[in-house]
């Protein structure tokens, strides 16, 4: 069907045009840029990989905040879905409550949390002082002990609802006969969560783990707006390093090289995503 091929091409053209201009062209540009300066090789200086520290920090941030999100998301979803909350008719209310942080734009989330974590006026410090947990205000965003946990708190607050709502939707899809059968067989609550509910949630856990990995690994906004990669360069993740090198230090080649490394790592994860999520979800289409 030649007519079919031309028609399909025509229909896909608009979407592919945008994607080629915005993804393929910049990738080629970055590759070229990183190779003309030999920066891709220049990332290794004097036997040490420059940029490795940013990489390690990024991996840690991603690993921890993704785990926190998945675990808290699961717990929160189980809580909202529990018989108790349903009986008190709080489950619906919780759906609405979960929308609030999710719909709050990241920039607003950062502004609020920076305000809340402020050493002088922030409500978190006030609470800590009143309850006598700390003798003097904590500088959450400029003290190296607290800056990572603070960042992870902000990211988690803003992104946890999406994870939780996905798990909740998945929980609702468990046929009630399955759970009833488990309780008839004499399984305790905990055992049925472990053996029936969690296995059922696994596909959703895989989707959310992969998606939040992309979102966190690639994210520039949270770190940049919250700490500006500081104090010093203590929270300089890969995304902020790419930005700093290109726009502050003017070292385009280095910036491009680091960007290519980022893209390569995410493409590897992307292939997992294609294999385990997209392929399975859209099985019938292919």
């Amino acid at each position: 069907m030649r007519g079919n091929r031309a028609f399909v091409g025509l229909l896909l053209l608009p979407a592919l045009f945008f994607l080629i201009v915005f993804y393929v062209y910049p990738t080629v540009f970055n590759l070229q840029n990183s190779l003309t300066d030999l920066s891709l090789f220049g990332l290794r200086r004097g036997g040490r990989w420059v940029g490795l520290r940013n990489y390690v920090d990024t991996v840690w941030l991603t690993l921890i905040s993704v785990s926190v999100r998945i675990v808290l998301g699961l717990l929160l979803a189980l809580l909202v879905n529990s018989d108790t909350l349903r009986r008190w008719r709080l489950a619906t209310l919780f759906h609405v409550i979960l929308i609030v942080p999710w719909a709050t734009p990241p920039i607003v989330a950062v502004v609020i949390w920076r305000w809340m974590l402020d050493p002088r006026a922030g409500v978190v410090n006030k609470l800590l002082m009143v309850s006598g947990l700390v003798p003097e205000p904590v500088a959450f965003l400029s003290d190296v002990t607290f800056v990572w946990p603070s960042l992870i708190t902000i990211i988690t607050w803003n992104t946890l609802p999406l994870v939780t709502l996905t798990f909740l939707a998945s929980l609702k899809a468990i046929p009630s006969e399955v759970l009833e059968a488990a309780s008839v067989d004499g399984a305790s609550k905990l055992r049925s969560v472990w053996h029936v509910v969690l296995p059922h949630l696994m596909p959703a856990v895989v989707v959310m783990t992969l998606m939040s990995t992309f979102w966190t690994f690639n994210n520039f906004v949270y770190v940049w707006l919250t700490t500006g990669a500081g104090p010093g360069l203590y929270t300089n993740v890969m995304a902020t390093e790419v930005y700093l090198k290109a726009f502050v230090d003017g070292r385009m080649g280095y910036s491009s090289a680091l960007g290519i490394v980022m893209a390569a790592i995410m493409t590897a994860f992307g292939l997992l995503y294609l294999r385990f999520v997209v392929r399975r979800e859209l099985r019938e289409a292919f």
């Binding site: 910049p26 970055n30 690639n218 992307g270």
Partner: peptide, 22 residues
């Protein structure tokens, strides 16, 4: 499958590296 996969990989792409070329 290849074209669709390519479109989907756009979701995993670090936007930060698009900024300079764009």
């Amino acid at each position: 499958a290849t074209i669709f996969g390519g479109v989907m990989l756009g979701q995993t792409f670090p936007w930060i590296i698009l900024v300079t070329p764009v």
